[in-house]
């Protein structure tokens, strides 16, 4: 028993937190499902990578006479947005630990709720930024090639965050209605992967769009 638990800790069947022995879903049973979700995540990452290459092409020579990054970007909001997403990732990690180690649903739901609220906070800031760009700052998507690619990249990320929040709310309802059955546990595990992956995309956006934008 001890020996097998030891093997399990050293050689997990899949990446990420495996559920505890005897509480399921069994790591071997979860492995193909988690791996399948990684395939989706990587495909999604390729989508973002292509949007980044469009952005890179447009930021050099696609700006025309419309306002450019140096005119539009103020790093305060993106900095706060980054901190919010980081906190949301931390809350999501806490939810994963609560799922594995605690058997009270309250704590799990509280962390999921915090993850959701922080995601909502991010979206509110982003929407406010979008509205300002489209109105006061005269920088709607159609103003230049660069702005089209900026709106497309940021909008795709924002839509992912919004979709993640809907997904999270649905899973939370399932936790309440059905309890922590294996299917629900697997969904929480996959949601955590999705949420952490979106954070990685955001780091790339911060670097390529905002920090490079004000620096060059």
């Amino acid at each position: 028993m001890t020996a097998s638990a030891h093997t399990r800790a050293d050689e997990r069947a899949h990446i990420g937190l495996t559920q505890r022995e005897g509480e399921g879903p069994d790591p071997d049973e979860a492995a193909p499902i988690i791996f399948g979700f990684w395939v989706f995540l990587m495909a999604d990452l390729v989508l973002f990578a292509v949007l980044f290459s469009v952005y890179a092409a447009m930021v050099n020579g696609g700006q025309g006479t419309a306002p450019g990054p140096a005119d539009l970007f103020d790093l305060k909001i993106p900095f706060v947005e980054t901190l919010i997403l980081l906190a949301s990732s931390l809350a999501c990690g806490k939810a994963s630990l609560a799922l594995k180690w605690r058997h009270d649903r309250g704590r799990l739901l509280a962390w999921m709720g915090l993850t959701f609220l922080l995601g909502a906070g991010f979206l509110v800031l982003e929407l406010r930024d979008f509205i300002q760009l489209a109105t006061e700052k005269n920088a709607p998507p159609q103003a230049s090639g660069w702005l089209s690619s900026y709106w497309l990249l940021l909008g795709t990320h924002g839509l992912h965050v919004a979709a993640g929040m809907i997904w999270l709310a649905v899973i939370a309802a399932q936790v309440v209605l059905w309890g922590l059955v294996h299917e629900v546990k697997l969904r929480i595990m996959r949601f955590a992967l999705f949420w952490h992956m979106l954070d990685i995309v955001w780091i790339a956006i911060i670097t390529v769009v905002y920090l490079f934008g004000v620096q060059s």
């Binding site: 899949h14 990446i15 990420g16 990684w38 952490h196 990685i200």
Partner: peptide, 24 residues
């Protein structure tokens, strides 16, 4: 930026170089 992406993969997504994770 690259370092932070690596940090996220390592500590949040738990990706490492263990033999059992080669497929991923």
């Amino acid at each position: 930026g690259v370092l932070q992406i690596a940090v996220h993969f390592r500590w949040f997504l738990h990706l490492d170089l263990r033999r059992s994770h080669r497929h991923d």
